[in-house]
Amino acid sequence: MHDKQVRRRRAVLALLVAVSLILLTAYFGEAHSGPLHSVQRGIVTVFSPIQKGASTVLTPVRDIAGFFSSTFHAKDRVAELQAEVEKLTGQVASLKGAQIQNNQLREIIRLGDNIGISSYRPVAAHVIGSDPSLWYDQIYVDAGSDQGVSTGQPVIGERGLVGLVTDVTADQSTVTLITDHTIEVGAEVEDGVGNVGVLESQVGNPNELVLSDLPTTANVQNQDLVVTAGFHYGKLDSYYPPDIPIGVVSNANEVTLASSGQVQVKPVVDLHTLDVVEILTKPHPGLTTASLVP
């Protein structure tokens, strides 16, 4: 009797492990349009309304927890913000001068002022969930293909770039954040020269990004703004339109910059407290060519 129980237990365990391994191998090897991916999208579609409802119902719980969490961090933030205010006051003075100059230059070269975000057909969406694991920096939003969303479209938050749409169902989308290890963004430093590099995440450090492939002679300073480069090469376009703020340089170590062309960047958007985002459903206005889909 005991032997029978042991055999049955081991058989169940072996079967479950084997099924998991088969699923893993099949899923990893198949294309994005494969049957397992389709089943997954079907499940997401089915659970989407439940998740949306749960998100609404549990909003007060999140808000209360968020209140305590932000109170906890408030003291640290005060000192940080005071230093930032002092720095920004100096910057505002110089920027006002630059703004006047900028307006004059725009008039001179007749640069259309209509290349604002509105030309990218933004679709607003609420965040209805996020991934708890350290390896998948993803959020789930309540806008999908019915609202004109498709994969490969950039997503922005209140202050800058958030990520990229990587999966879409009829009324829900998965947004992979810029801090996910699968995302790379062509980025430009607003350092007067416009040095360009590739921004990627550091696995395990969701609060910092690494801007690499910079010229080793670049004169990048801390607090320099980093924006999307929005490159355009033949028929290939970057997923991201140009000049969307991504972050500020948080650590421009001269030695690291000279040896490996890397600086650290802190995102301008707090990716952990997103409530509403905008999906740019037409990131390349005026162009008919499509971007590559991952």
């Binding site: 998740q51 749960a54 549990l58 968020g66 969930g129 708890p132 350290l134 969701p206 952990h272």
Partner: peptide, 18 residues
């Protein structure tokens, strides 16, 4: 469902409970 819709959006010490 509770994990995805609420718990994972609450940050404690910079991480979420699982």
């Amino acid at each position: 469902v509770i994990q995805v819709a609420a718990v994972s959006q609450i940050s404690i010490f910079g991480v979420s409970a699982d």
